Amino acid sequence: MKAAAKRIGLEIVGWLLVVAGIAALILPGPGLLMIAGGLIILSQQYEWAERRVEPIKREALKGAAKSVETWPRIVATSTMIALIAAAGVLWFMGPDTPGWWPLSDSLWLPGGKATGISQFLSALIALVLLVWSFRRYHGKPEAIAEVVAAAAADDDREGFWGQ
Score class of each variant (00 low, 15 high):
1 M>D: 15
3 A>P: 00
5 A>I: 08
6 K>R: 11
8 I>E: 13
8 I>L: 15
8 I>M: 15
10 L>R: 15
11 E>A: 12
13 V>H: 03
13 V>W: 02
16 L>F: 15
16 L>Y: 08
16 L>E: 06
17 L>H: 09
17 L>N: 15
18 V>N: 12
18 V>M: 08
19 V>W: 11
20 A>F: 12
20 A>I: 11
20 A>Y: 07
21 G>R: 03
22 I>K: 09
22 I>D: 08
25 L>Y: 01
26 I>R: 01
27 L>Q: 08
30 P>I: 03
36 A>K: 02
37 G>K: 04
37 G>E: 05
39 L>G: 11
40 I>R: 00
40 I>M: 14
41 I>N: 04
41 I>P: 02
43 S>E: 14
44 Q>E: 08
46 Y>L: 12
48 W>P: 11
53 V>I: 14
53 V>K: 14
55 P>Y: 05
55 P>S: 07
55 P>K: 11
57 K>Y: 11
58 R>V: 01
59 E>Y: 13
60 A>D: 08
61 L>D: 05
63 G>I: 03
63 G>E: 09
63 G>S: 09
63 G>V: 02
63 G>N: 13
65 A>Q: 05
68 V>P: 06
68 V>G: 06
69 E>I: 00
69 E>R: 11
69 E>S: 11
69 E>L: 07
70 T>L: 03
70 T>D: 12
70 T>H: 07
71 W>N: 11
72 P>V: 13
74 I>E: 09
74 I>T: 14
75 V>F: 13
75 V>G: 06
76 A>C: 05
76 A>K: 05
76 A>D: 01
77 T>N: 15
79 T>E: 01
81 I>Q: 06
83 L>D: 01
84 I>T: 14
85 A>C: 07
85 A>P: 07
87 A>L: 14
88 G>L: 09
88 G>N: 07
89 V>N: 01
89 V>H: 00
90 L>T: 06
91 W>C: 10
91 W>A: 14
92 F>E: 01
94 G>D: 11
94 G>N: 14
96 D>I: 00
97 T>I: 03
99 G>C: 00
103 L>E: 07
106 S>Y: 04
106 S>H: 08
107 L>G: 00
108 W>K: 03
108 W>A: 04
108 W>S: 03
109 L>D: 04
110 P>V: 00
110 P>D: 00
111 G>R: 02
111 G>K: 01
113 K>G: 04
113 K>F: 05
118 S>A: 09
119 Q>R: 07
124 L>V: 09
126 A>W: 02
128 V>C: 03
130 L>D: 01
130 L>A: 06
133 S>Y: 03
135 R>A: 06
136 R>C: 00
137 Y>E: 01
140 K>D: 06
140 K>G: 00
142 E>Q: 08
144 I>E: 13
144 I>T: 11
144 I>Y: 05
144 I>R: 11
147 V>H: 06
149 A>M: 10
151 A>D: 13
152 A>D: 15
153 A>P: 03
155 D>W: 10
156 D>H: 10
157 R>S: 13
157 R>E: 13
160 F>C: 07
161 W>F: 12
162 G>M: 13
162 G>Y: 10
162 G>C: 10
163 Q>E: 14
